[in-house]
């Protein structure tokens, strides 16, 4: 049997789409014995339409509110059928994870089903044309916050620190080898895992399509995005931010921050610093079970 692609190359995702890159890297890591679930979201473009699908593995398009519950059922049914070698991969955006899907995710994590939940975070409802979500960064313009979002983003990673995830990580399209390493680790675990991946979206964040990876890298470097993992009750920080003032450059490279005032700019930087300081202190603990 010739080696087959696990994801079609001819799909109508936008140019420079980070979500597609994450999915591709995920399947590259997990291989063909994987069942995936996507909610209606940008990832539904991978699921396809009509009699066609982009996935080379079995997939279900769930409803937006309860992908993790669908995954719970699949995971338990696989156990019943003795198909223990199959990985269940949830693949949802920030809306399906932070907002409407949060309750279902919290339930699935608490019940301890074996599944990997990947959140590709493009910081807004991008598939419906860029409306703010609770993951949208303070100050970002979206179609529902044209003058810039007034509230800080929900910190899902910190929220989930006190849930019984057997493995939790953040990752970025700016560092695909790191994402693959984390996903491989997650797939080896016998319980719920969560990987939160930053997915800078050229269409929604308004930067040139060739800059997707550069924006993601700058997010890591500037501390706008923190790379860490939690395993066995211990947090490991993967990358130390170089200089929080680089956030200015990060904001300037994206037109969605075109209306950010100097005050908001200060707040964004201060919050990023605060997040990192909190994380550093948490990383000194080893009791986050």
């Amino acid at each position: 049997m010739p080696e087959l692609d696990l994801l079609s190359k001819g799909m109508t995702t936008c140019q420079g789409c980070p979500m597609e890159l994450i999915a591709r890297a995920a399947l590259d890591t997990l291989g063909p014995r994987t069942i995936t679930m996507t909610p209606p979201s940008c990832a539904a473009i991978l699921t396809g339409s009509g009699d066609e699908t982009g996935w080379g593995i079995p997939s279900v398009q769930t409803v937006l509110m309860s992908l993790p519950a669908f995954a719970s059922g699949v995971s338990e049914a696989l156990k019943i059928r003795g198909m223990d070698d199959v990985t269940v991969m949830g693949f949802a955006g920030d809306g399906g994870t932070f907002d409407i899907g949060l309750q279902s995710l919290s339930g699935a994590i608490e019940r301890g089903h074996k599944a990997v939940f990947i959140c590709y975070n493009n910081e807004a409802y991008m598939n419906t044309g860029n409306q703010r979500s609770s993951a949208t960064t303070l100050g970002a313009s979206t179609k529902t916050t044209p003058t810039g979002k007034k509230e800080s983003a929900k910190n899902i990673d910190f929220m989930l620190l006190h849930t019984p995830l057997v493995y939790q990580a953040t990752a970025s399209v700016g560092n695909i080898p790191d994402f693959k390493r984390k996903l491989k680790k997650a797939a080896s675990k016998d319980g719920p895992c969560f990987i939160h991946v930053l997915a800078p979206c050229p269409s929604g964040w308004k930067f040139p399509t060739d800059q997707t990876i550069e924006v993601a890298k700058l997010a890591i470097k500037s501390g706008a995005w923190l790379q860490f993992e939690r395993e066995d009750g211990k947090i490991t920080i993967n990358t130390k931010p170089t200089d929080f003032q680089l956030i200015n450059q990060y904001l300037d490279g994206q037109k969605r921050f075109g209306r950010v005032t100097p005050e908001i700019r200060e707040r964004i930087i201060a919050e990023a610093k605060g997040r990192y300081e909190t994380l550093c202190r948490l990383a000194e603990l080893d009791c986050l079970v």
Partner: peptide
Amino acid sequence: SVKVSDVH
């Protein structure tokens, strides 16, 4: 669906 999306 079984067929593969193949948009050029």
